[in-house]
Nucleic acid binder design. Structure first.
Length: 598
RNA sequence: UGCCGAGUGGUGUAACGGUAGCACAGCAGACUCUGGAUCUGUUUGUCAUGGUUCGAAUCCAUGCUCGGCAGCCA
């Protein structure tokens, strides 16, 4: 089954888009995904990507990828590149024909309507240009146009240059339940504002000495309407525009106008921007723009149990070395999940399953895990691998004899075929599949007990050999030579079946076993002054030397395998020729673990 | 204590005045050469109180609870 063959999603935002499309409000639906390149994308962004690109594909529209890069001091090209890669990976084969990009280096076209400036820059039609000729949109590509819009706002008496210091600006703003006070610079003349703003741009003033502010209402119950800052002075190098500018627009000013310039119809963001919506609309309306205005809609961001989602916290984990990098397989980043082996289709299915609402809840990470297993169970070929090897000698099996057993590649998909696996006198089995004094309902090997070796023989354990300190180092067993799988007398039933590898033929591999990064469901709700890192799981990564069946020596990067009875695994990029490194994507559900806890 | 928003089983989400459903999780069982998968059954819910209505999760009122907002961050 195609994992994307799910019913068309429905939610309150799609309802709005559908109604707008129905009413013929727009010639085309245009959404946008606007990350700030100040960190790596995480699974919360994946939710947003699935929403925005999903709407684009369902309504025959486009979703522009835009870098929201208006703050030079926090943004870097490394982040731009990772964002591009992550988005492309996540939408590949699904909505990659809907991504809105622009010609490299292109900036908005200038149109003058009724003497007022207007700018437009739409996405380049697909297949018109090759991948090397296009790039994402950048808010910073609109700095010149935004500057013109700012001048227009000043001319209309809707913006002014304010000389208040940052501290005074705060003080004048008042509090949520206390009106603010007008800035003493609020009533400067248009000419003076124009002059000052141009000089701000020219670099005449140091950082923090002046701002451009919207002239709205210092007594507004919505603090974002209390003459919000539109431009600040920052003599800083910008990753995309270099040193061309020393004034930079604020989010609220840049975002709505970027949306407008690109012809966005539905600007979908998260709940915390709800209080900014009046400002979003105010700016666009104050400019009296000639084309249809974009509208902002808000949905609840994703919160996942047992992890953290804020870029600030993820950055902290990276910079403090708590994880190996942004793409550490334990990270909820898209690159981390990708390296871990999680597929894009699983992420999309997850996004579909959780839905879109305005309720700010916490999604159980089990929902994600289920989406991952569901696909992998269907798709992944099975292999035999032993994570913690315990040697087994079949005392009645001829020395030096090697036979091959016939193993099923994927019981969920017969067309995946079968493969030969070597079998011999000396084997490794999983240490935890043997217990000297097992509890009830332990269906694996025990002294005197029998177990089926998957695809091979039923064996009985005769003796557990121990070293001087009492550790079990080897099991001596006898095989029922009549019981070989597929053989004439194979139908004898035993309660347990375990996996194994042939000692002589198995290859060694490093296997990285990942567990949740945090020990508590909500690490960032620890209460006052409790650092989320307190709850870091010290055992989130365990590395073992495993033995895996020889066919895995040819495992390919990007391949995903189920090691039978254990979980799903994929090759890590750290692998070298002859040095396999596997990541455990996710373990199989383990109902024995549950039983054992009782 | 100003403004904005949200409350449906353990979690997430449907039902748009007409049988409260789905998914995940849980539990019980069947089946199984993966204690996987699959199948069957099943526990648990409309924040509260009033009102409108033949009928309310849905409409109205009041209250309660939770989240967001006072960056020259986004």
């Amino acid at each position: 089954m195609n994992p994307d063959a799910v019913p068309t999603p429905s939610d309150f935002i799609r309802d709005i888009v559908a109604a707008d499309a129905q009413a013929g409000k727009y010639s085309q639906i245009v959404t946008r995904f606007p990350p700030e390149p100040n960190g790596y994308l995480h699974i919360g962004h994946a939710k947003s990507i699935c929403l925005n690109f999903g709407i684009a594909r369902e309504f025959g529209g486009v979703c522009n990828l835009r870098m929201d890069d208006t703050n030079p001091t926090k943004e870097e090209v490394e982040y731009v590149e990772s964002i591009l890669e992550d988005v492309k990976w996540l939408i590949a084969g699904w909505a990659d024909d809907r991504i809105g990009l622009k010609r490299k280096g292109q900036t908005p076209d200038r149109v003058v309507r009724d003497g007022h400036p207007d700018f437009h820059l739409g996405a380049v039609p697909r297949n018109l240009l090759s991948a090397t000729e296009v790039e994402p949109f950048y808010a910073s590509d609109y700095f010149a146009q935004l500057y013109e819009y700012a001048l227009e706002l000043i001319r209309r008496g809707r913006a002014y240059v304010c000389d208040l210091s940052p501290g005074d600006t705060d003080a004048y703003r008042g509090a949520p339940d206390r009106a603010g006070q007008d800035s003493p610079f609020r009533n400067r003349t248009v000419a003076e504002n124009l002059d000052l703003f141009q000089r701000m741009k020219a670099g005449e003033f140091p950082d923090g000495t002046r701002t451009l502010r919207a002239r709205i209402d210092m007594a507004s119950p919505n603090v974002w309407m209390r003459d919000p800052v539109l431009y600040r002075i920052r003599h800083a190098e910008h990753h995309h525009t270099g040193d061309a500018w020393c004034i930079y627009p604020m989010y609220d000013f840049a975002h709505c106008l970027s949306d407008y310039i690109e012809g966005i119809t539905h600007s979908i963001c998260t709940l915390e921007f709800e209080v900014h919506r009046p400002l979003y609309d105010w700016i666009l309306e104050a400019l009296d723009l000639p084309r249809p205005l974009p509208h902002q809609f808000e949905f609840a961001r994703l919160n996942l149990s047992y992890t953290v989602m804020s870029k600030r916290k993820l950055l902290q984990l990276v910079s403090e070395g708590r994880v190996k990098g942004w793409d550490d397989p334990r990270m909820p980043t898209i690159s981390g999940l990708r390296r871990r082996g999680v597929t894009a289709t699983a992420l999309r299915r997850f996004a579909y399953n959780i839905g879109v609402t305005k309720y700010n809840g916490v999604t159980d990470v089990a929902v994600l895990e289920h989406a991952i297993r569901e696909e992998l169970n269907r798709e992944a070929e099975r292999r035999l691998g032993v994570l913690r090897p315990l040697k087994v000698v079949l005392t009645n099996y001829p020395e030096g004899k090697v036979e091959t057993v016939d193993a099923v590649n994927n019981p969920e998909n017969p067309s995946a075929g079968r493969r030969p696996v070597p079998f011999g006198r000396e084997l490794y089995i999983e240490r935890e599949d043997f217990m000297e004094a097992p509890p009830p309902k332990f269906f694996r090997l025990r002294p005197g007990g029998e177990v089926r070796l998957k695809y091979a023989y039923i064996v009985r354990c005769d003796e557990a050999v121990k070293d001087a300190s009492g550790n079990i180092v080897e099991l001596r067993c006898t095989a029922d030579l009549e019981s070989k799988s597929g053989g004439a007398h194979a139908d004898r039933k035993v309660k347990g079946t375990i996996h194994w590898v042939s000692a002589a033929e198995a290859v060694e591999a490093e296997v990285r076993l990942y567990d949740r990064l945090f020990t508590v469901a909500q690490p960032d709700s620890g209460g006052e002054g409790v650092d989320f890192k307190t709850f870091l799981n010290p055992r989130s990564l365990e590395t073992v030397r495993a033995r895996v069946e020889p066919s895995l020596a040819e495992a390919d990067m990007g391949g995903r395998y189920q090691f039978e009875r254990l979980g799903y695994f994929c090759l890590d990029p750290d692998s070298r020729r002859g040095q396999l490194v596997f990541n455990r994507i996710i373990p199989l559900k383990d109902s024995w673990a549950k039983e054992a806890r009782k």
